[in-house]
Amino acid sequence: MLVITNRKINKSNFINGVGDHNAFGDEPNVKGPNETRIAHAEKVNGKWQVRLMSEPSKITANNIPSRKAFNELRDKLRHSGKNCVFFVHGFNQSFEKNLEKAYKMQQVHNVEVVAFSWPSNPGGFKTKEYRVAKRNAVASVGALDATLEKFGSYLKEPFNKEALESCNVKISFMTYSLGNYLFQNYVNNASYEEETRIFHNVILCQADVDNAGHAHWVDQIESGKKVYITINENDWVLKWSDVNFQKDRLGRSAKHLNASNALYFDFTDGPGVGKTHGVFYQPTNDVVKSFFTRVLNGERGEFTQGLVFDSRMNAFRFE
């Protein structure tokens, strides 16, 4: 998988350009959160090999590492026939945890993942660290913006008949947990210029953002097809966030579901769902798995068998 990160590199971890699961740390790049590196991560015999594909680069309109990496990804997708997911992780994720979640997504849903890895693990699952992670999320908006801008432009090249005829790949975008706070700040930022239109689906998975007023920014999201929002009212991680910090979390509240731009999916009380936060990769039931397989592959989640639309809630629920 490709990994784009504004985390601090652990240079001593690399030998001849190859590191492991400790290749990047839990702090922002020392030269600022807009400086990124790009790497190729592969699991070999149960261990991560992280191959550095670029030196640090301050992202500008004409400069993001590396065009070659994105071209290779585009060609790989074209030949494998797999669909692709651009994945923004949540709070308390080390570099290794991010790799493992992305890898699990690839295995469970048969997709290729591009991981945007930001410094969300400043010391543990505590209130002080959570606040630091939120500041790091806001500081990472510029890196995400320029990454998506260049990601889109590189995938569109070359623009000719042969390329168009061979391009059957669907690319979707998923933000998970506190990654949605990063995305919310991006959408609300003047730098957002519909870069997400390149994605078939946009999935806001178990969003650790305020439910109140969420329609104001969700309705600004551009996608090629659909915007999906998932909910579990018993989500234990979002319950912790509720209790310690703020208002009802979007991913844990089945009320005021009023964004005209989104479809809501409430998995609360579904078989095996329980208090699960990681609904896209942890085993719950076949309906939830089928939903994520569909939307991550650019298909319509509302056609998932076993779910019906509840007009009173404005959400799809279990039959």
Rank of each mutant, 00 (worst) to 15 (best):
D20G: 12
T5P: 08
S140A: 09
D145H: 15
G224Y: 11
F303D: 12
T293N: 15
K68T: 07
L307N: 02
F280L: 08
Y154M: 11
E42H: 08
Y228F: 12
V287K: 10
L52D: 04
Q107E: 14
Q305C: 09
F91Q: 00
L99N: 06
N13M: 06
V243L: 15
A23N: 00
V202S: 00
D269C: 05
N297M: 06
D20P: 01
L52P: 07
P119L: 04
V44K: 13
Y264W: 10
W118H: 06
T127N: 14
K150D: 03
D248F: 12
K82Q: 13
F116K: 04
V113Y: 01
M174K: 08
S177F: 04
V227T: 03
F86H: 02
F151E: 03
V237K: 13
H256L: 13
T5L: 09
A133N: 06
H216P: 00
D310H: 08
I15M: 11
F245A: 05
G90V: 01
S66K: 08
G270Q: 05
D26S: 05
V114L: 15
K255R: 12
G272W: 00
P119W: 00
T175D: 06
L155F: 15
F125K: 03
E195R: 10
E165C: 10
W217R: 01
E112C: 07
E193R: 14
